[in-house]
Write a protein that binds this DNA or RNA. Structure first.
Length: 473
RNA sequence: GGCACGGUAGCCAAGUGGUAAGGCAGGAGUCUGCAAAACUCUUAUACGUCGGUUCGAUUCCGACCCGUGCCUCCA
């Protein structure tokens, strides 16, 4: 069994051989919990989720680690501004993040370590680097010495580029070479000496009180929870340099084994042609979209409607398209269930047990696009709609063979058709009931007026033979 | 300045050395008191520009234009 995926380091698609008995080790750089995650952040986690789902369908023994960064400049600042302890602050945002993950139907990682819970591992890693001459201490901080790492830059192809020293870094903070007294400006902090702004956030270390650097945590956590070489390490494209480059440098210098076989980087989500970011303030969250009646499932669909390596432009037209497309998939699923007398409510349970049938009769192209064509979700969705178009009606025998394949499709995409429960305010309910009475008694004029009144209040009435239902506009 | 990525119908978005999936929107119909939803059918001569290779290029090569990302703690 093989999976074809583009590898950032080699800049080409490579086959990943899957061996069901062997643990498949994958690590995804998780969120820094200092505010609401936006849907651009979630693009990364959704793509990673599709990958993990595919592996599970193939019965691969996946060990999936995704971290929580709960100590850095932004979390410390946020906690201070809210008069909270760092832990109170980050716990709140972690819960919010988990809530979003659940709504997006993201499978929970096997392990989700927090940076603050693995300080010992990080200190051990730093000590190892110190012992082997890869790091040096200056005034209570410890820095990684890039000049000691011969192949530094191999992921982002630094040897082919010139590093320009800018006055400002991407966080718009001064790149002050003297600030941390580094030997070279490119050296990065493994351990940061305590500063008054850090408040009560500090741990003891052989080099004095302080806190870990950003890159250190990921290397320490991968080593602790996954051991040696990872099969796939993923993250947003912006992490290629310096974060992932530094992770490689630390890990390989310390443990003397290759860090990662395959690097997976997910392109950014854009708004009006610019990347969605907290810095630019152009972000959408699951909550802000739900206020406009867009379900998280719709957002999820919109995020996989484009190929992960290509920037995806976020628009409401796109979201509407996703919603309509998703409804078609729901409707097809419902028909299939009805035909086979499967209780729609049982679908989540059935999906949990979904596996990829050995011989695909109907949806081979769908899985080929995902497995053999670099996780090509838009192509796969195209195949799915072509299938539905070609088979609007199935015989009972056909439906029986389609069903397991269909379940695998839903599982892979993380689509969970459910009947939406919408809470309807009492006054709306009352108006709708009144309209129904008018309609039944033949007073169409009054009925239409009431329909209009409901429309003005933001609700649509949909009649059918037996009755009516109401939904928000 | 360096390194990358992208430019396919109104909007998204696949893909291919031999004239281009799919979704949305648009149009028509069935249904309906009317609508909506659903279903069926359907439209458009869409591959950034200019050269080159080729029998043939949207696809390969080169140049250019436009847009975007990264270049020291951003997913």
């Amino acid at each position: 069994m093989e999976l074809n995926l583009f590898n950032t380091q080699s800049r080409q698609c490579e086959a990943i051989v899957l061996e069901p008995q062997k643990p498949f080790k994958t690590y995804c750089c998780g969120p820094t919990v200092y505010g609401p995650a936006h849907i651009g952040n979630f693009r990364t986690y959704v793509v990673q989720d599709v990958l993990v789902r595919l592996l599970k369908l193939l019965k691969v023994n996946v060990c999936y680690v995704r971290n929580i960064t709960d100590v850095d400049d932004k979390t410390i600042r946020g906690a201070r501004q809210n008069n909270q302890s760092l832990q109170e602050f980050t716990t709140y945002w972690t819960q919010r993040f988990h809530n979003d993950c659940e709504r997006l139907n993201l499978l929970p990682p096997t392990v989700e370590p927090k940076a603050t819970e693995t300080i010992d591992d990080q200190l051990a890693l730093i000590q190892l680097l110190m012992d082997n001459g890869y790091a040096y201490a200056r005034n209570g901080s410890v820095y990684f010495r890039i000049s000691a790492c011969k192949d530094y830059g191999k992921l982002s192809h630094l040897n082919e580029r010139e590093l320009q020293t800018q006055d400002l870094n991407s966080a718009e903070q001064a790149n002050d070479a003297d600030e941390y007294e580094r030997d070279q400006i490119a050296d990065f902090a493994l351990w940061k000496a305590y500063k008054p702004e850090d408040g009560t956030v500090a741990w003891n270390s052989p080099w004095g009180r302080g806190r870990p650097g950003w890159h250190t945590e990921c290397s320490a956590m991968t080593h602790r929870y996954l051991g040696g070489t990872l099969d796939v390490h993923s993250g947003g494209v912006d992490l290629v340099f310096p974060h992932h480059e530094n992770e490689i440098a630390q890990f390989e210098s310390a443990y003397k084994v290759p860090f990662v076989k395959h690097w997976l980087h997910i392109a950014h989500l854009r708004v009006n042609g610019q990347k969605m970011s907290k810095k630019l303030g152009n972000l959408y969250t699951l909550d802000s979209l739900q206020e406009q009646h867009y379900e998280p499932s719709t957002v999820r669909y919109a995020l996989i409607a484009g190929h992960y390596r290509k920037p995806l432009n976020f628009t409401f037209e796109n979201l509407n398209a996703a919603q309509s497309a998703l409804h078609k998939i729901y409707a097809y699923t419902q028909t299939l269930c009805k035909q086979l007398s499967v209780d729609f409510a049982n679908l989540p349970a059935l999906l949990q047990q979904a596996t990829l049938p050995d011989h695909l009769q109907w949806l081979q192209p769908f899985f080929d696009a995902l497995l053999h064509d670099d996780l090509n979700t838009p192509k796969a969705l195209g195949c799915l709609f072509s299938f539905m178009g070609q088979h609007p009606q199935l015989s009972l025998d056909e439906a029986k063979t389609v069903f397991p394949e269909w379940l695998a499709v839903l599982y892979a995409l993380g689509i969970q058709p459910v009947e939406q429960r919408i809470s309807i305010p009492a006054d709306i309910q009352e108006l709708a009931e009144k309209r129904w009475q008018c309609k039944c008694s033949g007073d169409y004029q009054a009925a239409d007026n009431l329909r209009k009144a409901l429309m003005d209040k933001g609700w649509r009435v949909l009649d059918n033979a037996q009755g009516y239902r109401i939904e928000p506009l």
